[in-house]
């Protein structure tokens, strides 16, 4: 066991025993991990105050190399991100981001870049200067890249040629696009006849957007947010890809949809 001080983002709390909670968090130095916070459901607990989900705090951790449940002993505030909890759209978008971290990251495999990406995305949502959907899309593209499971966007995966058609076809099973001149990944029939559930038509502008996002930083796009259609299409591609390769459906997207509907956004 070692005593460690580390910056973390609190992701989730679940009750544990009569008075404690298990806190799931992303640590800059230790990655995604779970820690017990003892006695934090009692009104008198001092520790409880700085374990609120969607905040960044500095923790003192009893880190056990031989266990997957550690002990949280002290906590102090770094970034409370107040505005995330006062606006349903910002809250819904932040929760989708948090769920991606919870479900896509391998446990205790630290990545300072993913940590920075998470904090930066929450900060942007908190400040509200950049469109929420755009922040979420950028987060997803960058996360898949950092995890090494991003879709291939640079060209046809068979012949390598640039994707110049107005509409291109994405194959989740192949993790990328196949151009019209190359044979489809199944034998019989022409490509366009058998797309169905197995492939997705994607506009050229969407590919360009995803490419740009995977390279640039989010803020530099801030001024000129792409239209809703482009964002949805790009989001659908990433969802399709993530679902196919990881078998993960992001549950909180349902609330995001409901929040958008309640707030008259499509």
């Amino acid at each position: 066991m070692s005593i460690e001080t580390t910056d973390v983002v609190i992701l989730k709390q679940t009750p544990f025993g009569e008075t404690s909670r298990i806190i799931t968090l992303l640590s800059r130095d230790f990655g995604l991990l779970r820690g017990v916070a003892k006695g934090v459901r009692q009104q008198s607990s001092r520790l409880a105050r700085f374990l609120e989900p969607l905040t960044e705090v500095e923790l003192v951790l009893y880190y056990y190399t031989d266990r997957d449940l550690h002990l949280i002993s002290k906590s102090s505030e770094l970034n409370p991100f107040h505005q995330l909890r006062s606006n349903p759209l910002r809250l819904a978008h932040s929760l989708v981001i948090v769920e991606h971290v919870l479900r896509l990251l391998p446990p205790e495999d630290p990545s300072p870049q993913i940590y920075e990406l998470l904090v930066e995305s929450l900060r942007l949502l908190d400040e509200g200067a950049v469109n929420e959907r755009f922040v979420l899309l950028a987060f997803r593209v960058k996360l898949l890249h950092l995890l090494g499971i991003a879709p291939r966007l640079e060209g046809c995966i068979t012949c390598g040629k640039k994707l110049t058609s107005r509409v291109n076809i994405f194959f989740p099973s192949q993790g990328g696009f196949i151009c019209e001149e190359c044979p489809p990944p199944w034998r019989e029939g022409r490509m366009t006849e058998r797309l169905g559930e197995r492939a997705l038509r994607v506009r050229r502008e969407v590919i360009a957007l995803l490419n740009q996002l995977s390279k640039g930083d989010i803020v530099s796009f801030g001024g000129k947010t792409p239209g809703g259609g482009l964002l949805s299409e790009a989001g659908r591609l990433l969802g399709f890809h993530t679902n196919y390769h990881l078998g993960v459906n992001i549950r909180s997207e349902r609330f995001l949809k409901e929040a958008r509907e309640a707030y008259g956004e499509k």
């Binding site: 709390q13 609120e52 006062s86 309640a262």
Partner: peptide, 11 residues
């Protein structure tokens, strides 16, 4: 007062 409580209240 929790993230779930906030989501419920706002909705």
């Amino acid at each position: 007062p929790s993230v779930e409580g906030d989501a419920t209240t706002l909705y």
